[in-house]
């Protein structure tokens, strides 16, 4: 039975990490903004524009690193725009976030076409390659899964403990959480609510864009319209699924990526006891089930969605 072989599991788990990576970047970005009290629905558009910007800069300059820089900057700018609307103007977070997704989606194709035009076959870049860490990659099973990966996969995995340390072990993290729970108390304690929210939205936006750039610059080698394919929305669900805790969000992203990798593999080995459509919807069904069970004890930040006006009662 092919399904039970070691090679099958190695392939499966390595694919799980690759497929979880864009979700992980976006989920960590969203976690940060929500912890500061702002739901950023601009995530889907931010990822797409990040994917486009990273690809385009890399294509034009020939440097993947400049491309990554371009993606980070693009995400930061969209985060800044979100912050201006949701924090300074105090506009509804739902409305401004969806507005940003619409704007970024339109812009990504608009800019792409301005620069590249519309050739019948889109030009590709030489993307980030899979790296092999000497010695460690030789370890049985775990070597090919963990130590033969894209650089960005490791960055995404390292991000989880970093975000955890930031939120729960630093003074800045305490400020972020306080702003998200009770901005007035934070203000009284001398914390700049606007400053913290601006910071989180800018950094969060950059992380979301990085998730998009992973798609166009590592996992694949060109930009195609629609290539984010709902990963931003999934990441929003993953933050809730993870109960606003970095570790649980990681578990959710791996779970989702793993199920996706599994269903592709079951199709490949010709597993036909159930129709393939069942496996396509399985991650979504399980996410809904998990959300329902988690939501009973949801620990969402107390001031999420509430605009804060300095000096208002």
């Amino acid at each position: 039975m092919e399904i039970l072989s070691v090679a099958f599991f190695i392939g499966l788990l390595a694919a799980m990490l690759r497929m979880a990576t864009p979700l992980l970047f976006a989920t960590m970005g969203e976690l940060l903004t929500e912890r500061a009290g702002v739901l950023n629905l601009g995530i889907e558009g931010t990822m797409l524009l990040g994917a486009m910007a990273g690809y385009l800069v890399a294509y034009k300059t020939g440097s993947l690193w400049l491309g990554l820089g371009g993606a980070l900057l693009t995400g930061a700018l969209l985060g800044l725009l979100m912050a201006f609307m949701a924090v300074t103007l105090g506009v509804s977070q739902h409305v401004s976030g969806l507005g940003i997704t619409l704007l970024a989606t339109g812009l990504s194709l608009y800019i792409y076409r301005m620069v590249i035009g519309s050739p019948s076959v889109p030009p590709s870049i030489r993307p980030f390659q899979i790296l092999t860490i000497p010695v460690l990659a030789q370890l049985p099973v775990i070597g090919p899964i963990l130590f033969r990966q894209y650089l960005l996969v490791w960055v995404a995995l390292a991000l989880v403990p970093l975000i955890w340390l930031l939120l729960f072990r630093t003074a800045l993290g305490l400020k972020i959480r306080t702003v998200g729970e009770n901005p007035k108390a934070a203000e009284v304690a001398g914390v700049s609510v606007y400053g913290i929210r601006y910071l989180c939205l800018i950094v969060g936006g950059a992380l979301m864009a990085l998730g998009g750039a992973f798609l166009s610059m590592a996992h694949f080698n060109m930009f195609l319209f629609g290539m984010v394919a709902g990963r931003g929305w999934i990441s929003i669900a993953l933050v809730v699924f993870g109960n606003w805790r970095p570790g649980k969000c990681l578990a959710g992203a791996l779970f989702f990526g793993g199920l996706d990798a599994l269903q592709l593999r079951l199709q490949a080995v010709g597993f036909q006891a159930l129709p393939y459509q069942f496996f396509l919807v399985l991650p979504y069904i399980l996410t809904i089930v998990a959300l329902v069970s988690v939501s009973r004890r949801a620990a969402y930040p107390g001031s999420l969605l509430l605009p804060y006006k300095r000096g208002e009662a």
Binding site: A15, M19, F220, G226, M227, A229, D260, L264, Q267, A268
Partner: peptide, 18 residues
Amino acid sequence: AFIGSWFDPPKTKEAALA
């Protein structure tokens, strides 16, 4: 394999790798 989407090259690639 069918990926259930017209526009998802990374997922298509994973299906092909599988």
